Simulated scan of single mutants.
Amino acid sequence: MASISFKNALGIHPDALMVRSKRSEILANNIANADTPNFKARDLDFKGIMRGEYEKRDRMSLDRTHSNHIPAEAITTESALKYRMPTQPAVDGNTVETDIEQAQYARNALEFQSSFTFLNSKFKGLSKALRSE
């Protein structure tokens, strides 16, 4: 019996869900600070993250408290944050354009739901395969 490779079966969708979740936090923070003077709107470089451009940079090793612990490292998303260039800058220095942020938030939510739906159908298919249906 051959083993199932979840990486091959699921593709980039698990990673995409994590990045889209983080992006929704960033976009919500932008919207929440729409009236904060000198606040600079930020966004994630989603395509860059998914291409792995940030994996070679800004890695942090997690400390092991025992030699039997599995070594691990994490990628910081901070390096993937970019400042958004406003089309109409505000007098107070705030670069949040609420309509653009809300549109980006809605689009991100739809793309999150698409990946989630895809993963759900993949898991249903894998479950049927494991039960030999």
Rank of each mutant, 00 (worst) to 15 (best):
A9G: 02
D35F: 05
A41H: 02
G11K: 06
G125T: 14
K56N: 14
P89H: 06
G48A: 03
Q88S: 12
A74M: 14
K7A: 15
T76C: 00
D92N: 15
I4N: 08
F6N: 11
V91M: 10
E53V: 06
F46G: 11
S5M: 08
S5Y: 01
G48Q: 02
A34V: 09
I75H: 12
L27M: 07
V91N: 07
P37T: 11
T36H: 10
T95A: 09
G52A: 07
R107L: 12
E78Y: 04
S3Q: 14
S24M: 13
D58W: 07
K122A: 10
A106S: 09
D45K: 03
I4R: 04
G11Y: 09
V91C: 01
V91K: 08
V91D: 07
A109E: 12
P71C: 03
L110W: 00
D99I: 11
Q113N: 11
L17C: 03
G93M: 09
E73M: 08
M85A: 13
E78M: 01
E73C: 01
Y105G: 04
I49T: 11
N38D: 13
A80H: 06
N8D: 15
A90Q: 14
G93P: 02
K47D: 15
G48E: 05
T117N: 08
K122F: 00
R51T: 08
P86G: 05
Y54V: 07
T36C: 06
K128S: 13
R59Y: 05
F46S: 05
A129Q: 13
A103T: 15
S127P: 00
Y83L: 15
Y83G: 12
R42V: 01
Y54F: 15
S21N: 11
A16W: 01
R42T: 12
A103F: 07
T95E: 07
H13R: 14
S121G: 00
K56Q: 13
K124G: 02
L81Y: 06
I4L: 13
E133W: 00
L10H: 02
K7S: 14
N8L: 10
E101Q: 15
Q102V: 11
I49L: 09
T77L: 15
T77S: 11
D45T: 02
S5W: 08
L81E: 10
K22H: 14
P71W: 07
E78I: 03
A80Q: 01
S3N: 11
D58S: 13
K40C: 01
G11E: 08
S115A: 15
D92G: 09
F6S: 13
A106E: 10
L10T: 03
D92H: 10
T87F: 02
M1G: 06
F118L: 13
M50D: 07
P86C: 07
Q113S: 05
Y105T: 04
V19F: 09
L119H: 04
N38R: 13
E25A: 12
I26T: 13
L110V: 06
K47F: 06
S114C: 00
T117L: 04
A34F: 06
M50A: 04
K82G: 05
S132Q: 14
E133Y: 03
S67I: 10
R23A: 10
K47W: 00
V91L: 10
R59V: 10
P89Y: 09
R51V: 00
A72F: 07
M50Y: 08
